[in-house]
Simulated scan of single mutants.
Amino acid sequence: MFGSGTLSSSDGQRFPTRGKSITARHLNKYFVSEGISTYTHVSDQHSTFGTKVIVATHREAHYVLDEILGNATDLPITEHATDTRGVTLVNFGLFDLVGEQLSPRIRDLGKITLYRMGAKSDYEERFPTAGPLLTKKANLDLVADHWDDLLRLAGSLKYGHATASLIVGKLSASSRRNALAAALKEYGAIRRTIYAAKYLSDEGYRRKIARQLNKGESLHALRRQLHYAREGKVIRRQTEQQNEQAWCLTVVTNAVVCWHTEYMGLAVGELRTAGRGVDAEVLAHISPARSSVVNYYGSITVDYERELAQLDEKGHRPLRTAGMDEPGAGL
């Protein structure tokens, strides 16, 4: 109900650090002293399948493709959503060349330059409303001249001969004198124009992208709550150790999401067995990134024999009913 696993999104989340680190930077907007960013990739099933520690002042758009191409899970990702910080013309071009769809939510979308394939007069005549919006003619000859090089570049990324973050960073910073970078940006501008037309004309598509980005934000909130130790600060100094700490947080987050998903399914099954209708469309908007049942603090004493005695034949705990949550009810 949550999704087919083909759509994902990515976003950065900032954490303060304790002590000096080569990845930590001063950002007065987010930290009292210094901090880092963790860039996470989330599927439409609320699972986190990619986590990487990056320098907080680096541009997030450079890291969008890394976990998509390095996806070691069974998720068949074909489309990826980001916010404005994950968008560049280079990313639009590379996503299409490697067979993926970049679907960002672009701030101030009305201010981007839209490209056309032919003469301005022809497009204004054919499309009286949209034609005047296509203000620039695409340089198709430049793209055609470097098409083989663009395919080789995409192949190098797809088969792991080069990291996407390195290539995207280099090409994004290249000037127009770099013919390959210019051709890729031109192709990316064409793909962005096609995407903008689809995004503006399809309200359902816009809602799908917004819903996916909201899933990422809800997981950010859950990670923030789970990361309470050491006052929520990253205490490791080496990049490898910081990545280990970030992945530990990801494992715990996925465990909480998995637990809630399992028991939500059991609750829905019991309601339907009792004859109550539960709309699948409503379930698609329910998030398992919850924390109300998580005990964050203190020592926890567990009576193993009592707990095991409550489990059914499949190992599930008994579901709580509405009456059990009333004041005075035993839990």
Rank of each mutant, 00 (worst) to 15 (best):
D83V: 00
D83N: 11
D83H: 06
T84S: 15
T84F: 01
R85F: 12
R85P: 01
R85S: 07
G86K: 06
G86Y: 04
V87A: 03
V87N: 05
T88P: 00
T88K: 04
T88C: 05
L89W: 04
V90Y: 02
V90D: 02
N91F: 00
N91I: 01
F95D: 00
F95Y: 10
D96V: 03
D96N: 12
V98W: 01
G99W: 09
G99R: 09
G99M: 10
G99E: 08
Q101C: 12
S103Q: 14
R105F: 15
I106S: 00
D108Y: 11
L109M: 10
K111G: 03
I112S: 00
I112K: 02
I112P: 00
I112Y: 01
T113H: 09
L114T: 07
L114F: 06
L114G: 08
L114V: 09
R116N: 04
M117G: 02
G118Q: 13
A119P: 09
A119K: 13
K120G: 03
S121R: 12
S121A: 15
D122W: 11
Y123F: 14
Y123G: 03
Y123V: 12
E124M: 12
R126C: 09
R126F: 11
F127M: 11
P128E: 10
P128G: 12
G131S: 06
G131Q: 02
G131N: 03
L133S: 13
T135E: 07
K136L: 11
K137T: 14
A138M: 13
A138Q: 06
N139C: 07
N139T: 02
N139G: 06
D141Y: 08
D141C: 02
D141L: 13
L142W: 07
V143S: 04
V143Y: 01
A144Q: 12
D145I: 12
H146P: 03
W147K: 13
W147H: 12
D148L: 12
D149F: 00
L150W: 04
L150E: 07
R152H: 07
R152N: 05
L153K: 08
L153V: 02
L153T: 00
A154T: 10
A154H: 08
G155Y: 01
G155W: 02
S156T: 09
S156F: 06
S156G: 11
L157S: 10
L157P: 11
K158D: 05
Y159R: 09
Y159H: 15
Y159M: 01
Y159N: 10
G160S: 11
G160A: 08
H161S: 14
H161L: 15
A162G: 03
A164P: 07
A164Y: 07
A164H: 06
S165H: 15
L166Y: 13
I167C: 05
I167D: 02
I167F: 05
V168D: 05
